[in-house]
Amino acid sequence: MIILAATPIGNLGDASSRLVEALEQAPTIAAEDTRTTVRLLAALGVANRPQMIALHDHNEKERAADLVEMARTGDVLVLSDAGMPTVSDPGFGVVAAAAAAGIGVTVIPGPSAVVTALAVSGLPTDRFTFEGFVPRKPGERARTLAALDAEPRTMVFFESPSRTAATLHAMVEAFGEDRRVAVCRELTKLHEQVVRGTSAEVAAWADEGVRGEVVIVVAGAERRAVRFDDAVEQVARLVADGARLKDAAAEVADATGHSRRDLYQAVLAARH
């Protein structure tokens, strides 16, 4: 079968006994960077020397079918450089291909930068959304963040240290100066740091320079006081822009607190 295995995101002590056992027994490992995996094997004292296959964003579409065929006769262990495969890392295409071919898929759970940052952020964890990396180009980045302005759930982003300050300033523009933000840097490593504050405060901190692996956690938007008639108009505008009425009513309901059923029925009634 296909085995997705989470690897440490920083602290080698987070490697589970199941991960070590799987590394010792795997005949084949598909890895985001085979050099990183070789170093992991050495650091964990694993003597096994499995067949190594590079699996990354640029070749996953082509490699997925081959890995699925290999999994018919033996286990294929899928690793990313750190954390859980498929979460902003290669692996999704392999899982989809395996599912379509009737090949079993299982997981060796473990470290995840998304959940670790969320837990330590001090922001609500009951509902959250993972948004991956923010677009690099300023215009696209601004549009992406603007579209998330009304998102009520806590948002988790990955970002490179060199672009962290620019992204935080873009968040000030998109979400306002007072949105609560936590920047989680070097999680589980020696120099782990979590900087919490308003978007403006954290952006000013980042101007001094940021180093290491970065995860940004942003509080969701507070529900705004919106009259029911105005909320109905918002739904109607979304529908006019191509959204399904059901989806538009749900989105506006989440943002305003009005009943999605009432919004749905009001827009229907306005059509007659």
Rank of each mutant, 00 (worst) to 15 (best):
V115G: 01
V218R: 05
S121R: 03
S121G: 04
C184M: 06
A6I: 01
E208F: 11
R211P: 08
P50Q: 03
A255T: 04
G176I: 00
G10M: 06
D247M: 11
P138C: 03
F158Y: 06
V235F: 02
W205T: 13
S16D: 08
T167M: 12
D262W: 02
R260F: 08
E60F: 07
T144D: 13
L12N: 09
K137E: 08
C184E: 05
G102W: 09
P109V: 01
D57H: 15
A249H: 09
R39F: 12
R185W: 01
F158D: 08
A243W: 13
P111M: 04
V156I: 10
P8I: 07
R227W: 14
V107Y: 10
V156W: 09
F92L: 14
L148T: 09
A221M: 08
E159V: 09
A249R: 05
L145A: 02
V210Y: 07
V38F: 13
A119W: 07
G13D: 01
D89W: 00
L40H: 03
D126V: 12
T167P: 05
I103Y: 08
V235Y: 00
A240F: 08
V20P: 08
R271M: 11
G209R: 02
A54E: 11
V181N: 09
M84R: 07
L238P: 12
G220V: 07
I3L: 14
A82S: 10
L55D: 00
R39Q: 15
R141G: 03
A47F: 10
T37Q: 10
D149S: 15
T129N: 04
E140I: 14
R223K: 14
L19F: 00
H56I: 02
G176A: 06
A255Y: 03
I53C: 09
G257K: 02
E24R: 14
V38T: 15
V214H: 06
F130N: 08
E159I: 10
A236I: 02
S112A: 03
R261F: 11
R39I: 15
V232G: 07
D241P: 11
V215M: 05
R136W: 11
V226N: 06
L148H: 03
D247Y: 10
A98C: 09
G242L: 05
S80G: 05
R211V: 11
L118N: 06
L238G: 15
G209K: 05
G93D: 03
A99P: 00
H56N: 12
V194H: 00
G91N: 08
P8G: 09
A26W: 02
Q51T: 14
E32W: 05
V215D: 06
G197C: 02
E32I: 06
V87F: 00
D241K: 15
E69S: 12
G122V: 09
F128P: 05
L187S: 05
V232D: 04
L148C: 04
F228A: 03
Q234D: 14
T73K: 15
A113I: 07
L23V: 07
T167D: 11
